[in-house]
Write a protein that binds this DNA or RNA. Structure first.
Length: 730
DNA sequence: GTTTCTAATATTTTT
DNA sequence: TATTAGAAAC
């Protein structure tokens, strides 16, 4: 079993007692080491029940579980899970000891923001000065530092803005409690709180988790650090794995010092460095090493590989984003014609919005792809609606969920009525659900509103009764049936059909969940799982598609061929990080660049458009400064195959580098003239929103045309030609 | 109470 | 530019 492990890896696996810090460079076989370490512990007679392994993503947890199961007996008795899932599991049992109900809901970012907006309005705070998103990030930051509203208030030292935010934070926590809800940060915060307040509970888990492993330790924030420290304090059998060069979550509170100071916290810690890379070619790895060596704050290390030198990195300067995407598509197509698989390719970018042009081009070129990130499945409106029904059934105190569905589908309960219910609920210190039950006590309500509310309450009660004795799948089906939800969606648009598809997908997920958790398929557990998944968790290795994702999402993955798109100043590094004057920001961007480059096994393409349209304006771009940090011998400029007229003549790398680095440089583009309209009556066309149809009339309307189209599904619509995005049907 | 329009906002990354 | 939230109109 251990034949294929190098001496450092073996040393890491065999170290059992006492603290251990593993610096695991990119592609150094980190997951192998962790899983073999679990197997080794079990082989040496450790009860898997006493092993805890913590990861950041469900995907990593799943992979570790599968790989451990393949080489160790009874590994399913270990706890292998994310920080958040592990903490939810702990809190479901004991959170009542610190004054919460064990049937709490989990609020996602959107729920939190909604709540903050309500509070800002209530406190009469100007949302211009205090944007909800900003407040949410401040509160999150405080929680990651384990600071209560009171702590924050005291620390604000009379600063007017800070005290105001502290007040919002204070109310926010009260409201969460009233809703019987926790946000993401509370999940960690309250587990730490539970351990601090209840030493008996802490000791129980200390004794249980005799061996602790933490993956991606460089990404832990202070709350997570405290959690791990508390658990490991008694027996000190803690093994943390990480790579300070891959710390890319500083903006989310990750504290790189946690890994750099590990030997201060545990002076007896053994430190092992895994520096042999098994993933990339010498050229790729050398380039990554060269880039990251420009960072000042890092522990010294040098990754090396026995792999071949491989091809040079290819750099492509595109005219614009469409050209950039076209180059990517052509290159992939060509490789696939020569025997490569689509799944060998990934297109990585800095921001989710960059996926759009790539996606457009791939559709045209008929390249199968899968996008990870962006709008997550569980954030889609129709899914949130249904989940809100489930949340309201599971936790009647959840006012946010209740407010979301009280008039969805429309049931004649308007804004005024909802406000009245809200106010009554706050005044009487009860949830909106119970307030509705007393709607006859609210003098301002019309009899009609009261009837609507009563009907709604009966509907919910019916669901609750049903849920007590039926499966989750059955409950979802009943909600759909009794509310006529699907029917309310249908408006003939393509989006509506997608929504129905998404709902079916949710039903599939529910069935999967029930099959995976036969002993306890509770609604609470399902909702918690659903709240804590990331899009990347659904990454399928088998599917033969090109993967599109941000470099953040790509961490932990590897691909034979990688394209990094938008390799330009202002995008990567971001304008903000380049201009903030804070060296840490730029260093984090550079670490992200290191992560991006080291995803590639065989080939790497760096592309950027000489001009791009941002927020409606065309802007010229200069190549990213990071390209200067790659040795010149490691890369070469390339040009698109079979294309000469539209691409400008080649320029030397040197000249490209010398190009203006000041960015952004803005240039207004003239307002579009009336575009010619190239369709006539009788043409079959396709439109984004309404799908296929036939043009039945074209009328002149001032500078524009008014086009009447009879759509196959949506029926007849009159639309302005300028606003339409019409294409011929085929 | 519902629909339609306007205006603001966005572009950093997410458990 | 594209999307979305809030306001005005119906």
């Amino acid at each position: 079993m251990k034949n294929n492990l190098n001496s450092m890896q073996q040393a890491a696996i065999k170290h059992i007692k006492g603290p251990l810090l593993i610096f695991a460079g990119a592609g150094s076989g980190k997951t192998r080491v962790l899983t073999h370490r679990i197997a080794h512990l079990i082989e040496k007679g450790v009860d898997p029940y006493n092993i805890l392994a913590i990861t950041f993503t469900n995907k990593a947890a799943k992979e570790m579980k599968e790989r451990a199961a393949a080489i160790a007996d009874n590994s399913d008795r270990c706890w292998i899970s994310t920080f958040h899932s592990a903490c939810v599991r702990i809190l479901r049992i004991d959170i009542d000891k610190i004054g919460y109900n064990t049937r709490f809901s989990i609020f996602d970012a959107a729920d939190s923001e909604r709540l903050i907006k309500d509070i800002l309005e209530e406190l009469n705070l100007d949302t211009k000065l205090y944007p909800a998103k900003y407040i949410a990030s401040v509160i999150s930051g405080q929680k990651n530092e384990l600071k209560t509203p009171d702590d924050f208030y005291k620390a604000s030292a009379g600063d007017f803005n800070k005290s105001n935010i502290a007040e919002v934070y204070n109310l926010y926590q009260q409201r969460l409690k009233l809703n019987n809800a926790l946000d993401f940060d509370d999940i960690i915060f309250n587990t730490v709180e539970l351990f601090k307040q209840c030493p008996d509970v802490l000791e129980r888990y200390q004794n249980r988790f005799y061996y602790i492993m933490v993956d991606e330790y460089q990404d832990t924030n202070n709350a997570q650090y405290m959690l791990v420290s508390l658990l490991a304090k008694k027996y000190q059998n803690i093994c943390v794995v990480g790579d300070d060069d891959q710390s890319i979550y500083g903006w989310r509170g990750a504290n790189i010092q946690n890994i750099l100071n590990f030997n201060k916290d545990f002076p007896k810690a053994k430190v092992i460095k895994l520096e042999q890379n098994y993933r990339s070619t010498k050229t790729i790895l050398g380039s990554a090493n060269s880039v990251i060596s420009n960072n000042v704050t890092r522990s010294e290390k040098s990754l090396w590989t026995e792999n071949i030198s491989g091809e040079k990195i290819k750099v492509y300067k595109a005219e614009n984003e469409r050209d950039e995407a076209a180059f990517t598509a052509v290159t992939i197509k060509l490789a696939v014609q020569n025997g490569a698989k689509y799944s060998d390719f990934a297109v990585l970018y800095r921001t989710n919005s960059q996926s759009r042009p790539v996606e457009d081009r791939f559709v045209i070129s008929d390249i199968p792809y899968r996008i990870y990130g962006g709008i997550r499945f569980y954030e889609r409106a129709e899914i949130k609606d249904l989940l809100s029904y489930l949340k309201a059934i599971d936790n009647p105190s959840d006012n946010i969920a209740l407010t979301r569905i009280i008039n969805v589908p429309r049931r004649n309960i308007g804004k005024i009525t909802i406000q009245e219910v809200q106010q009554y609920a706050y005044e009487n210190g009860i949830s909106m659900y119970y307030a509705i039950k007393e709607s006859d006590q609210m003098p301002k309500l019309t009899p009609r509103a009261t009837v609507s509310l009563e009907k709604f309450a009966n509907l919910l009660d019916g669901f609750s009764d049903f849920a007590a004795t039926n499966t989750i799948t059955a409950v979802i089906k009943k909600v759909l049936a009794d509310t006529d939800y699907i029917k309310s969606l249908q408006d003939g648009t393509v989006e509506a059909a997608n929504k129905v598809e998404n709902i079916n997908e949710l039903l599939t997920k529910a069935v999967e969940f029930e099959n995976a958790n036969p002993e306890e398929p509770t609604l609470s557990a399902f909702l918690a799982e659903v709240s804590l998944v990331a899009d990347i968790d659904n990454y399928e290795e088998q599917a033969d598609t090109v993967s599109l994702m941000t470099m953040h999402s790509a961490k932990g993955l590897e691909f034979a061929n990688v394209f990094i798109a938008g390799f330009e100043e202002g995008i990567f590094p971001t304008y903000r990080s380049a201009t903030s004057g804070n060296l840490d920001d730029l260093e984090e961007e550079r670490r992200l660049c290191y992560v991006g480059i080291t995803r590639a096994k065989q080939t790497l393409h760096l592309t950027w458009p000489a001009s791009r349209i941002r927020q409606g304006r065309e802007m010229n771009s200069a190549v990213s400064r990071f390209i200067k940090e790659i040795p010149q011998d490691n890369y070469e400029y390339v040009y698109m195959q079979g294309r000469s007229t539209t691409t400008k003549p080649p320029i030397s790398p040197r000249k490209a580098i010398a190009e203006k680095q000041v960015n952004p440089y803005r240039k207004e583009i003239p307002a579009p003239k009336n575009k010619p309209f190239n369709f006539s009556v009788g043409d079959r066309v396709r439109q984004m929103r309404y799908g296929a149809g036939e043009i039945i009339a074209i009328d002149s309307a001032g500078a524009d045309y008014e086009v009447t189209i009879k759509f196959d599904i949506a029926g007849e619509k009159k639309l302005m030609a300028n606003l339409l995005k019409l294409v011929p049907e085929n």
